Computed example of a mutant assay.
Amino acid sequence: MTPTTVLTIAGSDSGGGAGIQADLKVFAALGAYGTSVITAVTAQNTRGVDAVLPLPPRTVTEQLDSVLADFSVRAVKTGMLGTPAVADAVAEAAREGRLPQLVVDPVLVATSGHPLGVVEGVERLLPYALVATPNCAEAAALTGGPVTTVEEMVVAARTLAARGPGWVVVTGGDVAADGEAVDVLHGPGGTTLLRAPRVPTRHNHGTGCSFSAATAVRLALGDPVPAAVSAAKEYVTRALTGARDWELGAGRGPLDHFGWSA
């Protein structure tokens, strides 16, 4: 059977834990064929980002045109866009209806604090997103308000949903909630809290990328949004658990995308 095709538009992570590399691992692990458009090349590892080289918007558009001209893409996710000009190029494709079932992961700042995007660029994509998946820090940057509790996550999700996305998931892996990792899903049916046991591990680099990539795969395979998001959360929880005791790198290490430690 021909596999379902999914597209990621994001930056390259030389350490392999996030960005394009993580997205393609997730696509493969969940049974989809992955295609990619690289927006920037980064020099990074588990300890942080050492350098970023954004690609010209024209190069991003040429990659996008090439993929879409030849593959029947069923879902698309975006990650690091880097510059407002690249965000404009991607938003134009979305405006033209060329990016089906768009999942927008608003990557703004690396775990190390290195800037990887701008709020204005993400905001240009939000009206075209089927699902937006900010973490608490990204939700705070986009809304201008604090997002440090589950209650504030709910407010942020509703605020962002009013800007155009069909659904918003504010991921709360960094919010203390009685030993649980709580995500807030808001959409046409209201607000739902998604709960899973918190996994204590330093191997959590790329969780946002992996969550949004898994959501895109499940959408491509036909899941409705709530089911796709729930499946993505379960996948990331398993990947965190599998990598919990790994010793890869000296900083925040990658996830167990393929269940090697299951």
Rank of each mutant, 00 (worst) to 15 (best):
A91N: 13
P127E: 00
P134H: 13
Y128M: 00
L126I: 00
Q101D: 11
V107H: 15
E138Y: 02
D88G: 11
A93N: 05
V118C: 12
E123M: 13
L102M: 14
A139V: 01
P106G: 13
H114D: 15
A137G: 15
V118I: 14
P100F: 15
Q101Y: 13
A91R: 07
A85F: 02
A132H: 01
E92V: 09
L108G: 15
Y128S: 03
A129G: 01
V90I: 11
P127L: 00
P100Q: 09
N135K: 12
V107G: 14
D105Y: 09
A93E: 05
V131G: 02
L116R: 03
A132Y: 00
R98W: 04
A139N: 02
P100L: 13
P127K: 00
E123K: 06
V104C: 14
R95I: 02
C136P: 07
P115M: 09
A132N: 05
L108Y: 03
H114L: 12
A87G: 14
L99M: 10
L116S: 08
L116W: 08
G121C: 06
Y128Q: 07
V119S: 06
G121H: 08
N135D: 13
A139D: 04
P106Q: 08
A93K: 05
L116K: 08
V90H: 09
G97N: 00
A94D: 03
A139S: 02
A137K: 14
L126M: 06
G117Y: 06
E138W: 01
L130A: 10
G97E: 02
A85K: 08
A139Y: 01
L102E: 03
E123Q: 13
L102R: 06
A110L: 07
R95P: 03
R124F: 02
R98M: 10
E120T: 09
V119F: 01
R98K: 10
A141S: 13
A93H: 04
V103G: 06
S112D: 15
L99R: 08
A89V: 03
A87R: 15
L130V: 12
A94C: 00
L102P: 06
V118T: 14
D105H: 09
A137S: 14
L126S: 08
P115D: 11
A91V: 11
T133K: 04
L126T: 02
V103W: 08
P106E: 06
L125A: 06
G121T: 09
E138H: 05
A93P: 08
L125C: 03
L99H: 06
V109C: 13
V107A: 15
V86H: 13
T133N: 05
V122A: 14
A139W: 00
V107D: 12
A94S: 03
G97Y: 01
A129N: 01
A110N: 11
E138T: 04
P134F: 10
P100E: 13
A85C: 08
S112N: 12
L99E: 05
A132D: 07
V118L: 12
Y128W: 07
Q101L: 14
T111F: 09
V86R: 10
L126V: 01
A137F: 13
H114P: 11
A137P: 15
C136H: 15
E138A: 11
V103M: 04
V119G: 11
N135E: 10
P134G: 11
P127Q: 00
E123R: 08
C136Y: 07
E120L: 01
T111Q: 12
Q101E: 11
A137W: 11
A89I: 04
E92S: 14
T133Q: 07
V90K: 10
V118R: 12
